[in-house]
């Protein structure tokens, strides 16, 4: 018998792992975090409001599990540089070498951001949560989310040397990245 909640959860496992990895920066700990999230999601599923996004609800559980974990162990997991982790094999053949290198370096720069900036980038730019949803995940006011996110993006653009010529506007596609 199929359980749509479980199916949705399985579909989101890659996103949960990505978020977990960006939060804890250790692959082993990330999978532990995802597992704890899955367990808590089932024991607390009655608390999920289907009118809201399941991924935002799960990210919140995962992040709280991470905070618990840090406080219990009083250590910051082993920090590995996940930028050095092997790339997924599927590289779009149309991408130039330069693009691949730039994305790799962008990933490294995102990983170098302070944790509070990294997580807002993840939630909003990557997972496409709204500011309000991200504020709910992080338990902070929307204003805090916005100031962190702006700082994170300015830092990222500086690190990447992005200096877009004004001619690119109003062509807002912005997907030359």
């Amino acid at each position: 018998m199929s359980d749509p909640f479980a199916d949705d959860l399985i579909a989101l496992l890659p996103n949960l792992r990505r978020f977990a990895l960006s939060v804890c920066r250790s692959r082993d700990v990330a999978d532990d975090l995802v597992q704890i999230t899955v367990e808590r999601a089932f024991s607390g599923r009655a608390g999920f409001d289907p009118a809201t996004r399941l991924d935002a609800w799960l990210f919140r559980i995962l992040r709280n599990a991470w905070i618990d974990m840090v406080r219990r162990s009083k250590t910051r997991g082993i920090e590995i540089d996940i930028a050095d982790a092997p790339d997924a094999p599927s590289v779009d053949g149309r991408k130039t070498v330069e693009t691949v290198l730039m994305l790799k370096s962008a990933r490294a720069e995102i990983n170098r951001l302070p944790p509070d900036q990294r997580e807002v980038i993840l939630l909003i730019c990557v997972e496409e949560l709204s500011y309000k949803e991200a504020a709910g995940v992080l338990d902070v006011p929307i204003g805090t989310v916005m100031s962190r996110l702006a700082r994170a993006r300015i830092a990222l653009s500086k690190a990447m040397g992005i200096n877009p010529p004004p001619a690119r506007f109003p062509d807002r596609a912005g997907d030359t990245a």
Binding site: S22, C125, A150, A177
Partner: peptide, 18 residues
């Protein structure tokens, strides 16, 4: 453009992790 670009860049850079 800085904000438009960084959003696209972050999304693209982390897409392979999925």
């Amino acid at each position: 453009a800085l904000f438009v670009d960084t959003r696209g860049l972050a999304a693209e850079a982390l897409r392979p992790m999925l």
